[in-house]
Simulated assay, not measured.
Amino acid sequence: MDVPSTAPARAAALRRAARELTLVAVLFLAYKAGRQLVAGHAAAARANGERIWWLERLLHLPDEAVVQAPLLLHELPVRLANSYYAYVHFPATVLCLLWLYLRRPAHYLRLRRALAALTAAALVLHVCVPLAPPRLTTLTGLVDTGRRFGPTVYGPPDTDQLSNQYAAMPSLHVGWSLAVALALVAVTAGRWRWLWLAHPLITAFVVVGTGNHYWLDGVVAVALLALILAVLPRPAATPPPPAPPAGPSRPHVVPPPRRPGRRRNTKVPATADVRLRPPGRI
């Protein structure tokens, strides 16, 4: 029976899964705690927000208000955008990590390392460049859609103890969603796999339309992720399954040539000329 041998293996797999989930949770909590290092820099963050807004105009990037204006025409689209921002980002990342851990461990390890490196780089930028999002920068004229229409994940910016809202550069929503999409594209097949890229595209539209990020926040996140993925080693290609073992080969026996036999006369003999004997005497 193989039950005693499979039970320890299953327990070891569960321990590894718990350890990986704990590691991801610790990284996320460390990121949340690190954002508090730039708390209390509201004035500098708003000034940097105005500089970013003017820099985007110099680069001829589209105004963020152009994206937000269609959402404000009706309450339903703006609520959908707020819900996508609040409820899709982290759960989608966790589900992708779990699926890759169970089905593609090498790709899981690469994605985990990419997310950790991107988060660490974001913390450095948050400390060095505190940045107010467009919804908290008066010059942009954008509406805080989360507070006005809901749902929102933020409280008042000056009293929010759970998250620092003056750390918009770079956008981890855009960076994480792009990393997840690229990992899923790499492990799936067919033309439809490119639809995974809809996730970062929708995320970029949502974070800008809700006033949570500038265009440049997403651009910087994409650039950082590209550098990180270029450094990380690629997972080895999965070798093809081995061919089934061939059975014992039998020697090829050549049949002997057939001897030419005597040809039988198949013709019907001609009727013999039978002469009638004269009747005998009794």
Rank of each mutant, 00 (worst) to 15 (best):
A9C: 00
A9W: 02
A13I: 10
A17F: 13
A17I: 11
L27S: 04
G40E: 14
H41Y: 12
A43M: 00
A45R: 06
W54C: 04
L55G: 11
L55R: 12
H60I: 02
R79V: 11
A86E: 08
Y87D: 06
F90V: 03
F90T: 11
T93N: 00
T93M: 08
V94T: 04
L95Y: 03
A117P: 02
T119Q: 07
A120V: 00
A120K: 05
A122H: 08
P133E: 06
P134G: 02
P134Y: 06
L136P: 06
T137W: 14
T137E: 15
V153Q: 00
V153Y: 01
G155V: 12
S171D: 08
H173R: 11
H173E: 10
W176A: 07
V180F: 03
L182D: 07
R193D: 05
R193Y: 14
I202Q: 05
T203M: 14
T203P: 00
G211C: 07
N212H: 15
Y214Q: 09
G218W: 09
L232H: 10
R234T: 05
T238V: 15
P241R: 09
P242W: 10
A243Q: 13
P245V: 02
R250N: 12
V254E: 15
R264A: 12
P278L: 15
P278V: 13
